[in-house]
Design a binder for these strands. Structure first.
Lengths: 151, 151
DNA sequence: ATACGATCTACAGCGACTGTAGGTTCAAGA
DNA sequence: TCTTGAACCTACAGTCGCTGTAGATCGTAT
């Protein structure tokens, strides 16, 4: 059966070496076997778990959510409503982010090709960013608690 | 001329009180006038600056970028190429994020309405998340450095 | 005058990493 | 077999952008 060093794990999943160790320290992946010299050696299962982790992180799940998911997956079945709840929550968050990003993209486009770089003097980038009146209240919801914080 | 307490600033811009103080401590907004009792009193200009800040944050600019932008805006014109550079960088980042989010959204939708919550037993949420083979390498770029980190 | 919410400072803590220092191990080539 | 040099190890501090806490003070409406 195949064995992987932490570096190979990193290359195969795209998760940085330091981050893999961090995940281990957080209990998100089990402590792997070690060589006599103390280096980590992972098996196929560990590779899959790490890929799952990377995947879930990309989906925007917090490490806490992921831990919950893992616990759910390892618990003797039971009710999966909590898992749905987590997924739905993430979906809502993603939708929110996408909406904002779409609006923002337009403004950035306006900014980026406002005038050729090099032209000194009037600089639309700063102008547009400064002229928040154009969009204050358009995206975001002033007079309510900000939802800038992620997750 | 109107004056605003920090709480009013917060309500008007959607930036939390603590965050406003944080921005001040980071030098992103100037220290405002104070009442004899020591409470902050802001003017219209400060309100605009804060709105700008909120706006720029929503656009995905880092506080560092924003500081640069402010410096550029306050400097005696000069060359605005750096501002363009920042805007273009952000635009690229936004595009990247949107692409990823769009793909992820689909997976989340698949998960979220995989089966009605309540049905015990098989839980597609965990199943889908576990079956990362469906997407490993599809989004994200394994074998390259991960770009999970923001900004 | 009193009450009560808003504000003050200072500082610790969070999430999710990332980087550093200083040492050890492993695998491939000479 | 020996030697190199990349990869690995631990421990811990630092980053970013906030957020929360404690305990005191302020300001305004009644």
């Amino acid at each position: 059966m195949k064995e992987y060093s932490i570096g190979q794990m990193s290359r195969r999943t795209g998760v940085k070496v330091t981050t893999i160790r961090y995940y281990e320290s957080r209990g998100l992946i089990p402590a792997p076997a070690r060589t006599t010299g103390g280096q980590r050696r992972y098996d196929e299962a560990a590779l899959e778990r790490l890929a799952f982790l990377r995947h879930a992180r990309e989906l925007g799940f917090s490490l806490g959510d992921i831990a919950d998911l893992i616990a759910l997956a390892e618990a003797p079945s039971k009710d999966c409503a909590p898992a749905h709840e987590i997924a739905r929550k993430q979906l809502a968050a993603v939708d929110r982010r996408m909406t904002i990003l779409a609006q923002l993209r337009e403004e950035l486009v306006r900014m980026a090709d406002a005038d050729d770089p090099g032209h000194a003097g009037k600089c639309r980038v700063i102008e547009v960013l400064g002229d928040h009146r154009l969009c204050i209240g358009a995206h975001g919801r002033p007079d309510r608690s900000a939802d800038l914080s992620g997750s």
